[in-house]
Structure formats: structure tokens, C-alpha cells
């Protein structure tokens, strides 16, 4: 990822009353249409590789250890020993205390280190702690920071507070890219998802991200579609591209390919790279690898033949 994205002059605070409303049933219908796209042959192979390159390989557990993180990094750098021409994943995503380990393990592989921050996953800490945590993660070597918004404040209508927090965290990130997690599973309505997306983008988010993975539902196609549409509207309005990261719940290659279909038909060519689209996932990579192996050999695969880290 490039250094700090070009910051075009950004309006101070968005007029949320002008954000177009979302009709839930309509969004579900549109998302269902993407799932009727039939992706076969070369299109499928290309899609599977693209999915791999967009993965933020993630471990966010209380039981994480340096050993576990090193194994994950090894997997990130070499997804499969039997297939040579595979892309690398985009990043490894860990807790702040594991950033140093990951940084060291990944070396100059070109794979980014992403760190969650700001009191992940609930965000229920004071702002100065959030900023401190962010700065430490960056100092420890994080290329990307995945922050959470204060959902409680958002649901209380304290949009200004949510906005100001993001602005502050963005500043604390320095050159690191900022992904803003909306935790859509707690926002309840698609209208809220859209408003929160707009808020985050105007506050300076480089990426907007659906979920922490700790709350159900996590990423869904419907929620992601609303966010992609918000990104498109923001781009139309300001000329600034913002990336998208659905996270949590995407563990099957077929579903991930449907996300790519949705991305293609909503934002088009410019976003179809790891620079602008990521999957936050822990088990997706292996399913994609199995599909690639199946495409190549013609035989359906067993998980026993794919390393789990």
C-alpha cells in the first residue's frame, strides 16, 4: 500500500440527513442477484487467485502466542507447498501485542502487518488510551490499523463524537493506513450502516470494514453492498477512493467469489485489487486453495491435504 492516501480536501462533517436511505428488501434482492452469477473456467480461476491476494489472514484470539503468529506468517508467505504460482495474501492481522512478532516473521515478504487497535473489539476505553494503543502498534511496525468505532455513541446519536474519534485515530496512525470497523452486527439497520460508513469516510478512513468477527452477524453480502454503495457515492462526491473490507463469516471460496462479483458490478475496475479490497478471514484461504486444486486436477479435494495454521 502506498503511503498516506492523497487527502483531497474533505468536508468537516458530513450532512447525514442527505445520505440516501436504504431499503432492506431491495438490498437483499440485489445481493441475491450477485449470487446468481455463474463463475466458471478461467473466470473462476482468476477470481480464486484474486481472493487469495486480498486476504488479511487473521488471528485475533485471547490464546494467541508468538508461536501461533509465526506459524500464521509462514502460511501467509507460502500458502501451499504443492502449488507454485499462487499470489501472497495481502496482510496478516493480529492484536497489538503480536505486531512485533509478525513484523519480524514477515520480513521483506511484502505482506503487510495489520493490527487491530482502539480497545478492540468493544472499543469501550477512553480516547487517550485508544490513541496510545494506535501509536504503539504503528511504532511496533503495523502498516495498517483496524480501529473500531464507538457503537454506543453512534446509536445514541453522538455522531460528532464518533467522527472526532476517527479523525484523532487517523492522525495517530501517521503513515499507517486506517481501516474503520463499523461492527455492523451492532448497528442494527442498513440505514445506520450507510450513515456510519459516510461518517467514517468523511473522518478520513482509508478503508471501511464490516466487523470485528466477535459479533454475529459479521460480514454479509447485504451489509457489504450498502458499504460499497456508500464508497461509490463518496468517490462521486469527493473523488477520493476508499477501500472495503468485509470481515468475519466468509469462509467459503464460492461466497468470496460472489463478493468479487458484487465488487465488480458496484465499484468496477479500480477497486479490484488488494489495495482497495480485502477479506478479513482465517479459514477462507484453505477453501480457496482447495478450489484451485480442484480446478487444476478436476478432483474434489480433502482438507487433510491443506496445512492449517
Amino acid at each position: 500500500m502506498s503511503a498516506a492516501a492523497e487527502r483531497i480536501e474533505i468536508p468537516a462533517f458530513p450532512d447525514l440527513s442527505r445520505v440516501p436511505r436504504v431499503d432492506e428488501v431491495g438490498i437483499y434482492e440485489r445481493a441475491a442477484r450477485f449470487r446468481t452469477r455463474s463463475i466458471k473456467k478461467e473466470a473462476k480461476m482468476d477470481a480464486l487467485k484474486m481472493v487469495l491476494s486480498m486476504i488479511d489472514l487473521t488471528t485475533l484470539e485471547g490464546q494467541d502466542t508468538p508461536g501461533k503468529v509465526r506459524q500464521l506468517c509462514a502460511k501467509a508467505m507460502r500458502l501451499d507447498t504443492s502449488m507454485e504460482d499462487l499470489p501472497k495474501v495481502a496482510a496478516v492481522c493480529v492484536y497489538p501485542t503480536m505486531v512485533g512478532v509478525a513484523r519480524e516473521a514477515l520480513g521483506d515478504s511484502g505482506i503487510n502487518v495489520a493490527s487491530v487497535a482502539t480497545g478492540f473489539p468493544s472499543g469501550m476505553t477512553d480516547l487517550d488510551l485508544k490513541l496510545d494503543e494506535t501509536r504503539r502498534a504503528v511504532v511496533a511496525g503495523a502498516d495498517e490499523i483496524d480501529m473500531v468505532i464507538s457503537r454506543g455513541a453512534f446509536l445514541r446519536g453522538e455522531y460528532r463524537r464518533v467522527f472526532d474519534e476517527i479523525v484523532a485515530v487517523k492522525e495517530a496512525c501517521g503513515d499507517a493506513h486506517l481501516k474503520v470497523i463499523l461492527e455492523t452486527g451492532e448497528l442494527n439497520t442498513l440505514d445506520n450502516v450507510k450513515r456510519a460508513s459516510v461518517l467514517a469516510m468523511y473522518a478520513g478512513a482509508d478503508f471501511i470494514k464490516t466487523s470485528t468477527g466477535k459479533i454475529q452477524p459479521a460480514a454479509t453480502m447485504e451489509v457489504t453492498l450498502v458499504m460499497l454503495q456508500a464508497i461509490r457515492d463518496f468517490y462521486r462526491e469527493t473523488g477520493r477512493m476508499v477501500g472495503m473490507k468485509p470481515a468475519g463469516g466468509i469462509s467459503k471460496a464460492k461466497l468470496a467469489v460472489h463478493y468479487l462479483v458484487m465488487l465488480r458490478e458496484t465499484l468496477g475496475q479500480a477497486w479490484m485489487t488488494p489495495e482497495w479490497f480485502r477479506f478479513g478471514a482465517s479459514s477462507l484461504a484453505n477453501d480457496v486453495l482447495m478450489q484451485i486444486a480442484k480446478q487444476r486436477s478436476g478432483a474434489y479435494q480433502s482438507p487433510d491435504y491443506f496445512s492449517k495454521d
Binding site: 473466470a43 477470481a47 462479483v261
Partner: peptide, 9 residues
């Protein structure tokens, strides 16, 4: 936006 994408079906 450009919908004439490198990746198509």
C-alpha cells in the same frame, strides 16, 4: 467508474 473490468465472466 469503469465497469469494463479486466476480470469478467
Amino acid at each position: 467508474l469503469n465497469f469494463n473490468t479486466d476480470w469478467s465472466y
